Measured scan of single mutants.
Amino acid sequence: DDLEQFAKQFKQRRIKLGFTQADVGLALGTLYGNVFSQTTICRFEALQLSFKNMCKLKPLLNKWLEEAD
């Protein structure tokens, strides 16, 4: 599944880049005006958010990865 794959890759890249889940949540706030909690990022990576929320977060996290690289 696409979302599952993305969540896995996101977590690996985030760790490799040296960011915590909280860092990502704050960075999203800075970039897009939407601060996300560490818990939200954690749940995303664990696929524990609703499908709708996963779909909403994915493009933001994808963009963040591009910026962070």
Score class of each variant (00 low, 15 high):
F36P: 13
R14Y: 02
R13T: 05
C42Q: 14
E45T: 03
Q48L: 08
T30Q: 15
F19L: 10
Q9E: 14
F44L: 01
Y32N: 01
K63V: 03
K56F: 12
E66D: 15
L49K: 06
F36H: 10
L47W: 01
L26K: 12
L60W: 10
F19Q: 03
L26E: 15
V35D: 14
R14V: 03
K58R: 14
G29I: 07
L61C: 02
L61V: 06
A7Y: 06
F10D: 00
K16C: 06
L49Q: 01
A22Y: 07
A27G: 09
K63L: 06
L28K: 04
G29W: 07
E67T: 11
G29V: 07
F44Y: 00
A22W: 02
R43S: 03
E66C: 13
S50F: 03
Q9Y: 14
K16D: 12
D23K: 03
P59M: 09
R13V: 09
L65K: 10
D2V: 00
C42M: 09
L47K: 11
E66G: 01
A7Q: 03
Y32Q: 12
R13L: 02
T30L: 08
Q48C: 03
V35C: 07
A68E: 05
G33R: 08
Y32E: 08
L31D: 13
R13I: 02
R14K: 00
G29L: 00
V35A: 06
G33D: 06
G18T: 01
C55E: 09
S37E: 08
K58C: 15
G33V: 00
S37N: 08
D23W: 02
D69T: 08
G33L: 01
I15G: 02
M54I: 01
K56V: 10
D23I: 03
T40K: 10
F10C: 08
F36I: 15
L28F: 05
R14C: 04
R13N: 04
Q21T: 06
L17F: 13
F51P: 14
C55D: 04
N34R: 13
L31R: 14
L31M: 11
W64D: 10
L26G: 10
Y32T: 06
A27S: 09
M54K: 00
D23Y: 02
T39K: 13
A46D: 05
Q48M: 05
K58M: 05
Q38T: 14
L31F: 13
Q38R: 12
L61T: 06
W64P: 03
Y32H: 12
F6S: 12
G33K: 04
R14M: 00
L61W: 01
K16L: 12
F19I: 15
A46H: 13
K11T: 08
Q12D: 10
D2P: 08
A46Q: 09
T39W: 01
R13E: 09
R14S: 02
K63W: 04
Q38V: 07
F36L: 12
V35F: 10
L3F: 07
Y32G: 10
Y32I: 02
Q9I: 07
L60A: 06
I15T: 06
T20W: 01
L3I: 11
Q9S: 12
K56Q: 06
N53R: 13
K11N: 00
C42Y: 14
N34C: 15
P59F: 09
K11Y: 03
Q9F: 14
L47E: 04
G33C: 01
K8H: 09
L31S: 11
N53L: 11
P59W: 00
V24K: 01
L65V: 09
G25F: 00
L60K: 08
L49N: 05
C55Y: 09
G25L: 01
F36M: 14
L61R: 00
N62I: 10
Q38F: 08
Q38P: 13
G25P: 00
N34L: 07
R43A: 02
C42L: 10
K8A: 13
T20H: 04
E45L: 04
K8I: 15
D2W: 11
N62M: 10
R43D: 07
Q38A: 11
C55V: 14
A7K: 01
N34P: 15
K11W: 03
A7M: 03
K16W: 04
K63M: 07
F19V: 10
L57E: 00
R13M: 05
D2Y: 07
C55F: 15
T20V: 00
L47V: 13
K8S: 03
Q21S: 09
G18P: 00
D2S: 11
D2C: 05
A22T: 11
R14E: 01
I15Q: 13
L26V: 11
F10L: 01
K8G: 05
V35S: 11
L49F: 01
V35K: 15
P59Q: 08
E66Y: 04
Q9T: 14
L49T: 01
K58I: 07
N62P: 00
L61I: 04
C55G: 08
V35N: 05
S50V: 00
N62S: 14
G25T: 08
T20G: 05
R13C: 06
L3M: 14
Q48N: 11
T40H: 02
Y32S: 15
N53W: 12
L3D: 04
G33Y: 06
P59N: 06
G25I: 01
R13W: 04
D2L: 09
S37A: 09
V35P: 12
D2A: 15
G18L: 00
R13G: 03
W64G: 02
T30S: 13
G25Y: 02
Y32C: 15
E66K: 11
N62H: 15
T40N: 03
L3R: 00
T40L: 10
Q38S: 12
K8E: 13
L31P: 06
F36D: 06
E45P: 02
L61K: 04
Q12T: 09
K8R: 13
L31I: 14
T40A: 08
L47Y: 11
G25A: 15
Q12K: 09
V24L: 04
L26Q: 14
S50L: 02
